Simulated assay, not measured.
Amino acid sequence: MTALAPGVLLIADPFLKDPNFSRTVVLLCEHQEKGSFGFVLNKLFDQHLDELIPEVVITKIPIYVGGPVQMDTIHFVHQQPEVITGGLEISPGVYWGGHFDSVVANINQGKIDLDKIKFFIGYSGWSSGQLDEEMKEKSWIVTPALPTLVFAQDEQQIWQNALKNMGSNFAMMANFPIDPSLN
């Protein structure tokens, strides 16, 4: 089993009922004794980056709901450390954060590959011991983060594809109904 650490994916168990995390995949960016922090990769927000940050002149850049905490903050992960400075590499080729003003300037100048950056409003947070308890309850399946999943454009397929990437035992879970009593 993959250990909890920065740069892993938390794949929601097919029967997880929490509406914030049902059928989600969370990129874990920080995991310490004092708590954990990450971003939901597959819940599209109903506005675009230029609608929230007027300085962004490129339209239709998607934003994802990173989680239910601090929905008045914007975060990002990327694959472009040569253009975006100040980020922290959390898994091979995946960086969390960096200098936001330079991100905006580089987007406006066309210097950022928009397929290699993902923006989030809010984040997912767990207090000390909370995520460990959820692991004991089998709420999450843990796997190393692959850039192909982190930066996937079709958010509706990320959860299924994350399970399928884990092998045949998990692949069949991707087809489980949300409520098995309706099957």
Rank of each mutant, 00 (worst) to 15 (best):
Q157W: 01
D132T: 07
D132H: 06
V150Q: 05
I141V: 12
F100N: 02
E133S: 01
Q109N: 01
I112V: 12
M135S: 14
V103G: 00
E137K: 14
L131F: 07
E137T: 04
G97N: 11
S102L: 09
A152S: 15
S102Q: 15
N106S: 15
Y123C: 15
I141C: 06
Q130N: 07
Q157R: 04
G122C: 02
Q153P: 06
Q156H: 04
Q153E: 11
I112Y: 07
K136T: 04
I141L: 13
F119Y: 11
I107E: 02
I141M: 11
A145N: 08
K118G: 08
F151Q: 03
S102F: 09
S139R: 14
K138P: 01
S139I: 12
D132A: 08
D154S: 12
N106K: 14
M135L: 15
A145S: 06
D115N: 15
D113I: 01
D115K: 13
N108I: 02
T148M: 14
E155C: 13
K116H: 08
P144F: 09
E137Y: 07
L114V: 13
Q156F: 00
G122K: 02
S128R: 07
W140F: 09
K118I: 09
V103Q: 00
G110S: 03
E155T: 14
G110W: 03
S124P: 03
Y123T: 09
D113N: 14
P147D: 01
K118A: 05
G125E: 12
Y123P: 07
V104M: 10
S128M: 02
